[in-house]
């Protein structure tokens, strides 16, 4: 029996297919080494995208959020 480990080293297209380096894959999508179900480095589907806020800041126009930053505000006297 041979064991295959999740390709933690990710996508690799830099060598011949017959010498695909260990722990790499020629074909993968939407997977990460840190699985999202239990936060283990065993490989699995990537985390899903969820709304951070339910507020549509485009006002329903469906317009992209083009820039963001954070600002620190010192408490008022």
């Amino acid at each position: 029996m041979a064991e295959l480990l999740f390709p933690h080293a990710g996508y690799h297209k830099g060598s011949a297919s017959s010498t695909q380096p260990q722990n790499t894959s020629p074909d993968l999508m939407n997977v990460r080494p840190l699985d999202n179900l239990d936060d283990r480095f065993r490989g699995g589907q990537r985390p899903g995208l969820d709304k951070w806020s339910s507020i549509d800041i485009s006002g329903g126009v469906i317009s992209p959020v083009v820039a963001m930053c954070t600002v620190t505000i010192v408490e008022a006297i």
Binding site: W52, S53, I57, I62
Partner: peptide, 8 residues
């Protein structure tokens, strides 16, 4: 689409 998201 005007929503703010995060990886969950």
């Amino acid at each position: 689409d005007g929503y703010l998201r995060e990886f969950s």
